[in-house]
Amino acid sequence: MRIATTIFLTDQSITPVRLARELEQRGFAGLYLPEHSHIPVERTTPYPFGGVLPPEYGRTLDAFVALGQAAAVTERLTLGTGITLVAQHDPIDLAKQVATLDHLSGGRFTLGVGHGWNREEAEDHGVVWRTRRERVRDFIGLMRALWAEEPTAYEGEFASVRASSAYPKPAGGAPRILLGGAAGPKLFAHMADYADGWIPIGGRGLTETLPVLRGVWEKAGRDPETLRVVPCGIRPTPGKLAHFADLGITEVVLQLPSAPEAEVLRALDEYAQYL
């Protein structure tokens, strides 16, 4: 099983360069970064995990800039977003960012895609909340058109692009795309339509939901061997990782504390037992 990590990198935490070097030297498989552009102070949307919103949500580094630094000082470490709030981006600009990072890293990038939970943040980006899922699907379609080898047009309800020259291309034709979100018919249908798998937070309930997802995947004509499920934000125990392995999961993403260097390195020391 591949053991990757995720962390809220901030202006107060360990740096991307220091963390990436430590991860590669210690044998961890990858680094996934979340994103929030900003957190409006007058927020009415509740924190999905309950309680007070942790301060690191409003201090996150730009994921693509940070992952670019990580790519520059590593050779094998895989890089990913966990997740990118795609609806809040200009899809043409985002396609360029993704392709550039994947190209420069030699195909090490995974695009984790999310629909978001903070309504106020999304609305500041001009996102109409009830349409965000369809908006994300359109944006991914546009980006795939720009990544295509031949100039390809895309016409959608929320995004369109003319057939264009758009380089660089992602190293492998297109990066792996994992869709985040809670299990449900709509999420699984979108996943089978345009993604390569699922990046659920925490991994609870997978015993029940994975067979449902696999059924939707196969009904859509997708090869069951290509489905990737990568639980993210895991607090590991030997039993939990063994359970994931029994479910056929081959990669997990462990949660690191959003903290200065010394505390993060202690967490890596603790997680070393799982490598």
Score class of each variant (00 low, 15 high):
Val161Phe: 10
Asp124Lys: 12
Phe158Gln: 05
Gly172Leu: 11
Gly184Asp: 13
Gly172Lys: 10
Pro151Asn: 06
Thr152Gly: 05
Glu155His: 14
Asp124Tyr: 15
Gly141Gln: 04
Gly141Arg: 01
Tyr167Asn: 12
Arg133Gly: 14
Arg137Tyr: 03
Val127Ile: 14
Ala153Tyr: 03
Ala183Val: 14
Ala145Thr: 07
Pro185Thr: 02
Tyr154Ile: 06
Glu157Tyr: 00
Pro185Val: 03
Arg162Tyr: 09
Ala148Ser: 09
Asp138Asn: 01
Gly181Asn: 02
Gly156Ala: 02
Arg144Met: 06
Val161Lys: 04
Phe139Cys: 05
Arg132Asn: 10
Arg162Trp: 09
Glu134Ala: 13
Arg137Ser: 08
Tyr167His: 14
Ile140His: 04
Gly181Met: 05
Ser160Thr: 13
Ala174Tyr: 00
Val161Arg: 06
Tyr154Asn: 04
Gly126Phe: 12
Ser160His: 10
Ala166Tyr: 08
Pro185Ala: 11
Pro175Cys: 01
Glu157Gly: 00
Met143Val: 09
Lys169Tyr: 01
Arg130Asn: 10
Phe139Pro: 00
Phe158Trp: 14
Gly156Asp: 04
Glu123Gly: 08
Arg176Thr: 14
Trp129Gly: 10
Ala145Asp: 09
Glu157Cys: 01
Ala148Arg: 02
His125Asn: 13
Gly126Tyr: 13
Val136Pro: 01
Gly141Met: 03
Ala174Thr: 06
Asp124Gly: 13
Trp147His: 04
Arg137His: 02
Glu123His: 08
Leu146Arg: 12
Asp124Trp: 12
Arg162Met: 13
Arg162Lys: 14
Ala163Ser: 02
Val161Pro: 05
Ala153Glu: 14
Arg144Thr: 01
Arg137Gln: 07
Leu178Asp: 06
Ala171Ser: 15
Ile177Arg: 11
Ala122Lys: 04
Asp138Tyr: 00
Val161Leu: 09
Ala163Glu: 07
Arg132His: 11
Ala148Glu: 01
Ala183Glu: 12
Tyr167Cys: 07
Pro168Ser: 12
Glu155Gln: 15
Arg162Gly: 10
Thr131Ala: 13
Pro151Trp: 02
Glu123Phe: 05
Arg133Ile: 01
Ala148Lys: 00
Ser164Leu: 10
Ala171Glu: 12
Gly181Thr: 05
Leu146Met: 12
Arg135Leu: 14
Pro185Gln: 06
Ala163Asn: 03
Tyr154Cys: 05
Ala122Gly: 14
Gly181Pro: 02
Ala166Met: 07
Arg144Asn: 08
Asp124Arg: 14
Asp124Met: 15
Gly156Phe: 04
Ala145Leu: 09
Thr152Glu: 02
Trp129Cys: 10
Tyr167Trp: 11
Glu155Arg: 13
Ala122Met: 11
Tyr154Phe: 15
Glu123Asn: 07
Ala174Val: 07
Val161His: 08
Gly173His: 06
His125Arg: 11
Gly173Trp: 01
Pro185Tyr: 05
Leu179Gln: 00
Gly172Gln: 13
Val161Ala: 15
Trp147Arg: 07
Phe158Cys: 09
Ser160Leu: 09
Leu146Cys: 10
Ser164Trp: 06
Ala159Pro: 10
Arg176Ser: 03
Gly184Ala: 06
Gly172Ala: 11
Leu146Gln: 13
Pro175Thr: 01
Pro151Met: 02
Ala166Asn: 07
Met143Tyr: 00
Glu134Ile: 03
Ala182Asn: 13
Arg162Ile: 11
Gly156Glu: 00
Pro170Ile: 06
Gly181Tyr: 03
Gly126Leu: 11
Ala171Arg: 12
Ala171Asn: 03
Ala166Asp: 03
Ala145Phe: 07
Arg133Asn: 10
Glu134Met: 15
Ser160Asp: 11
